[in-house]
Design a protein around this nucleic acid. Structure first.
Length: 522
DNA sequence: CGGTTTTGACCGGCGC
DNA sequence: GCGCCGGTCAAAACCG
C-alpha cells in the first residue's frame, strides 16, 4: 500500500503542477501561524538529500512535522532521562497527542478543501476552454462563410445546429432572463460544476444506505448512474433536445459517458476500483467481445463500465465509464473518477447545445497551454454523449489522421483530458439521430504521451499513470511557477469523469494514428 | 462456502 | 409487426 501510494505520489510529482499547487494551497489553507510549506518530497529515496532538505527547511517545517519531530525527541528524553517524572511525561504526552490530533484534523480539512478547489477549478477550466473554442469557432466561421469554404470548424458548428452555433456560446454564466432556468440546468456552468462537485464531495460525508434508493433530489448527482444502469426504461429514448432542455436537466448528464483508450495487453485496465463482470456481448462490427462491469466497492454503486478491444488495433483497450460513485474512493480510483467527471462536464457543456455531431480541431487554439493539442470530438453517432480520453497517441503519430474520419466530429481541447469516444466516433451514426454528441478527445502532445507511457510502463496501475499524466498537463505552469491552487486527490467527481477518475487504463506504447474512437466518464 | 465469471435468455428501443 | 442490436439478468460453473 505504501509502495503504491508512493508510486502514485511520485507520479504526481512528475509535474510541477501539484508541487506548486500543494505548496500554494497549503500556504493558503494553513493558518497564518504556520509558515509556508515548501516542496516536500516525503517519499524521496534519497535519504541524504531529504535530510539535507529537512535541515534547510527546518525553520519552516509545517507544524505537524515539526511537532512530530519534537515529540520524537521528547519521547526519547522522557524514557531515558525523566523516569522520575512519569506523571509529567504522561500529561505532556497527552497534550502533545491532542496537539497531533488537532494537526491531523487540520490537515484533513485542508486536504478536503484543496480537493474541492481542484474539482472546482477543473470545472471552470473546462467551461473556459469550451467558451474559448466557441469564440474561435465563431470567428473562423465568419471567415469561412465569406469565402464559401467549409472549414472543419465551420462544419462542426453547422452540424451542431442552430442552438449549437448561436448559443454555443453556451454562456452559462450569463443566462438570459427567459432562458435562465433552462440554461442553468442544462449547461455546465462553473456554478453548476461546482454544485455538482460539492455534491460529489458530499458523497464522502453522507452515508449511503445501499439498500435505499437514492433520493430524487439527488437525481442530478446520480444522473449518470441511473442511466447507465441503464435501463432505457428510465430515460427517454428519443432524445428530443428541445424537450430535454425544458424538462430534464439531468437527462444529458445521465447519459454522459467517458471512455478511455489505452494500449494494454491486460484484459482490463486497473483503475483503482473493484469491478464485477455481469455480462459479455459480441458487439456488431467488432470481433472482440464487449464486457460489462459494475462497481462493487459499495453496494448499490451505480457506476458501470464497458471494456472492449479496438477492432482496428487489438492492443488498444477501450474502457467506457458511466455513472458516479456513491462512495468514497481510494486515491488511485479518485484520479480516474475525477478525470471522468471533468470529461463528462466538458462533454455535457458542449453536448447540451447541439444535437448533431461536429468537428473542431483545437490544435493551437490555446497556445498558452502547453498541452493544448488535445482535442475532443463530438459525434451524434453515439447514443450517449461520450468523451474519450485517448492515451494511445504516440509522439510520432499524426493527430486525426484516420482512415475514415468521422463525418462529424467536434474536437474540443482538453488540456490533459484526453478521451475518445469509442467506437461510436468511428462509426457513422445510424440510430439516434438526436442523440447527444459524442466527444472525442485525442491527446497528441508528446510529453503527455511520454509521461503516460512511461508511467504505464513502470506501473501496471494505470490509474496512477493517468493521474500523473493529467497532473503533468494540468500542472504545467504557463510561466514558471504555476500558482494554480488546487490539487488533486480530491473526491471523485466522477460524475463520470475528468479530473481523471482513477481512470482506467493499461499499458502504453506507441501509437497508431487511428486514434480515438469512442464514446463518451467516470 | 462465498464471491466472481460465464453464458444464454430476456427485454426494450429502433429501423425497416 | 418483425428482426436486429445493445444491455441486463440470473442460473450454473468456476475459483480461491
Amino acid at each position: 500500500m505504501e509502495k503504491e501510494l508512493r508510486r502514485e505520489l511520485t507520479f504526481l510529482h512528475s509535474g510541477d503542477y501539484l508541487r506548486h499547487q500543494n505548496s500554494s494551497a497549503l500556504r493558503n489553507l494553513t493558518d497564518d501561524s504556520n509558515p509556508p510549506v515548501k516542496e516536500l518530497n516525503l517519499f524521496s529515496d534519497d535519504k541524504q538529500s531529504y535530510d539535507q532538505e529537512s535541515k534547510n527547511r527546518s525553520p519552516r517545517l509545517p507544524s505537524l512535522f515539526a511537532s512530530s519531530l519534537k515529540n520524537g525527541l521528547n519521547l526519547m528524553n522522557s524514557s531515558s532521562e525523566n523516569e522520575n517524572k512519569p506523571k509529567e511525561d504522561l500529561s505532556t504526552l497527552q497534550v502533545k497527542l491532542a496537539s497531533l490530533h488537532e494537526e491531523n484534523r487540520k490537515l484533513k480539512s485542508m486536504l478536503e478543501h484543496m480537493t474541492k478547489n481542484y474539482s472546482d477549478l477543473q470545472g471552470q477550466l473546462l467551461v473556459a476552454m469550451h467558451r474559448q473554442v466557441q469564440g474561435q469557432h465563431q470567428e473562423q466561421r465568419k471567415d469561412g462563410v465569406s469565402n464559401g469554404k467549409s472549414s472543419p470548424i465551420r462544419t462542426a458548428h453547422e452540424l451542431m445546429g442552430p442552438r449549437a452555433s448561436g448559443p454555443l456560446e453556451l454562456d452559462v454564466n450569463e443566462p438570459s432572463a427567459s432562458d435562465n432556468k433552462t440554461t442553468q440546468e442544462l449547461s455546465v456552468s462553473p456554478e453548476n460544476t461546482m454544485e455538482v462537485m460539492s455534491k460529489e464531495h458530499d458523497f464522502e460525508r453522507i452515508q449511503i444506505d445501499p439498500g435505499k434508493q437514492i433520493p430524487v433530489e439527488d437525481a442530478t448527482t446520480d444522473q449518470t448512474s441511473q442511466s447507465w444502469g441503464g435501463s432505457p426504461k428510465s430515460t427517454p429514448t428519443k432524445l428530443d433536445l428541445g424537450k430535454e432542455e425544458e424538462q430534464a436537466p439531468e437527462v444529458p448528464l445521465r447519459k454522459a459517458r467517458v471512455s478511455v483508450r489505452a494500449r494494454s495487453e491486460a484484459p482490463m485496465i486497473s483503475d483503482g476500483c473493484q469491478w464485477r463482470k455481469y455480462g459479455q456481448k459480441m458487439a456488431k462490427g467488432n470481433p472482440c467481445p464487449r464486457a460489462y462491469y459494475r462497481c462493487t466497492m459499495a453496494v448499490g454503486c451505480p457506476v458501470r463500465k464497458q471494456v472492449q478491444r479496438c477492432a482496428d488495433d487489438k492492443t488498444i483497450l477501450i474502457t467506457t465509464y458511466e455513472g458516479k460513485h456513491n462512495h468514497p474512493l481510494p486515491p488511485a480510483a479518485m484520479a480516474m473518477a475525477n478525470t471522468t467527471s471533468a470529461a463528462a462536464a466538458m462533454l455535457l457543456s458542449g453536448s447540451t447545445t447541439s444535437n448533431e455531431s461536429s468537428c473542431i480541431t483545437n490544435s493551437g487554439y490555446f497556445s498558452p497551454f502547453p498541452y493544448a493539442s488535445t482535442m475532443a470530438t463530438l459525434s451524434a453517432s453515439a447514443p450517449f454523449p461520450t468523451i474519450t480520453l485517448d492515451l494511445t497517441q504516440g509522439p510520432n503519430s499524426v493527430p486525426f489522421l484516420r482512415p475514415t474520419p468521422p463525418p462529424a466530429t467536434f474536437p474540443v481541447p482538453l488540456h490533459g483530458y484526453t478521451n475518445l469516444l469509442g467506437q461510436s466516433a468511428f462509426v457513422p451514426p445510424p440510430k439516434f439521430p438526436h442523440a447527444l454528441p459524442t466527444m472525442q478527445l485525442g491527446q497528441h502532445h508528446s510529453s503527455m504521451v511520454e509521461t503516460v507511457s512511461a508511467a504505464i510502463a513502470s506501473d501496471p496501475n494505470f490509474t496512477a499513470a493517468l493521474a500523473a499524466a493529467i497532473s503533468t498537463i494540468m500542472g504545467t505552469p504557463r510561466s514558471g511557477n504555476g500558482n494554480i491552487s488546487n490539487n488533486n486527490g480530491g473526491n471523485n467527481s466522477a460524475a463520470p469523469n475528468l479530473s481523471i477518475p482513477g481512470v482506467p487504463l493499461g499499458s502504453g506504447s506507441p501509437q497508431l494514428p487511428q486514434s480515438c474512437t469512442t464514446f463518451s466518464t467516470n
